[in-house]
Design a protein around this nucleic acid. Structure first.
Lengths: 208, 208
DNA sequence: CTTTTATAATGAACACCGTTCATTATTTAT
DNA sequence: ATAAATAATGAACGGTGTTCATTATAAAAG
């Protein structure tokens, strides 16, 4: 059987990616295996390797899609409201990130599952998708810093991003001690942003 | 063959754990498999299951050991120097965390690899080991807050912890855009701590 | 000093996994 | 109608965690 042409190469690629997405959503990253995937699309396992070089490459494509969705959320007007203060927008952005993590849990967790080939270098196109996310935050911080403080602004953006992610990640994976009965992400994120923004202008930054 | 008594049950348990530790250190979490482990200690794979209920349980024990080591570092006098300011000690603690992450990379990464049975609840004894880490930071923050601000202090500790971890994690896993050529963890951690400490007293905190 | 009982250790077997590649079936070109 | 090209296959390889009837040994009983 060859060139069944049920699907063109491109169609097949999309089909595989779409089914991968569904499998991860339903059963988590563990649910995405070559055999299950082949079964679900009505092809043999080997066929997948005619389209993707490895399952890892496919995982990466799923992650890429997740990053695109996340970027869509963080670049949305919901947290770039000109009528609101930068701090308000930042708080909103933190909430959006947290909501994304909860709503898209298996996809979001997959972004940080690091059992992959270990130390492999991230490819530029993938790094670009990551960098975009930080840009969304830099846009909110830019007005607060002068032109000569670009480096400081970029550092602030990285710090706020990493901090928000840290809060979200530790909480979502049960690695944060409970404070009261409930999750306190929102109040902690708000406290973080308020505090950091107050201090970030007067605090010094080490020279490059 | 039974009751070879080469080792008592306890000895065998220690032997397995010790060898697991070495395997993870040498080849990462992937290197710790039932067969390799059995081979390394001179027993059959089935024997491991007479001592540990599953490989996951063993992974958890390795993580427990890592957490103990980390606690030893963060509770050390190096970052609890009475002659230094709380901020200085906090900065030192952040550096110690980062050094730990680098020096014990495979163990440290394993703490956050979340391919485990997914949503399994963390057992209390394990949660306790996590909570201890936060306590080390609370000790540094305590003098800065009044008795009535205990909740606020605990929130500040969780925020600073999560933020530092976030910085470290994103950087170590290549998910942080490069700022200059080099890693900027130290200067970012310092900037974070300086800024947050400046603002954390005046910034409001949502009521419970 | 047997003989029985209890049990520690085994390792083949099961159902999975990612991946390879010679083979096959089908389409396209001659 | 034949030949060349190629899409799809699926058995096979070497791995994984886990189970459990079997076996070999140590302890207890006779």
């Amino acid at each position: 059987m060859a060139r069944r042409k049920d699907h063109t190469r491109e169609e097949l690629k999309n089909l595989i990616l779409e089914m991968s997405w569904r499998l991860v959503g339903k059963e988590g990253p563990q649910g995405l295996t070559a055999r299950r995937l082949a079964d679900a699309i009505g092809y043999a396992p080997g066929t997948i390797y005619n389209v993707f070089p490895s399952m890892d490459a496919l995982y990466l494509q799923v992650n890429a899609r997740t990053l695109d969705l996340l970027h869509g959320v963080l670049a949305s007007p919901a947290c770039h409201d000109a009528k609101k203060t930068p701090v308000q927008n930042m708080k909103k952005m933190a909430q959006l990130y947290r909501s994304f993590a909860q709503d898209m849990r298996p996809y979001w967790l997959m972004l940080f599952s690091h059992d992959l080939p270990e130390t492999r270098e991230v490819e530029p196109w993938y790094q670009e998708k990551i960098d975009r996310l930080f840009t969304s935050l830099e846009i909110l911080l830019a007005p607060t810093f002068s032109g000569k403080q670009q480096r400081k602004m970029k550092m602030a953006a990285r710090i706020l991003w990493a901090s928000t992610h840290g809060l979200c990640f530790l909480e979502e994976t049960g690695k944060m001690p409970k404070l009261d009965g409930e999750s306190a992400f929102e109040s902690m994120a708000n406290y973080l942003i308020d505090s950091f923004v107050i201090g970030m202008k007067t605090a010094p930054v080490a020279q490059e």
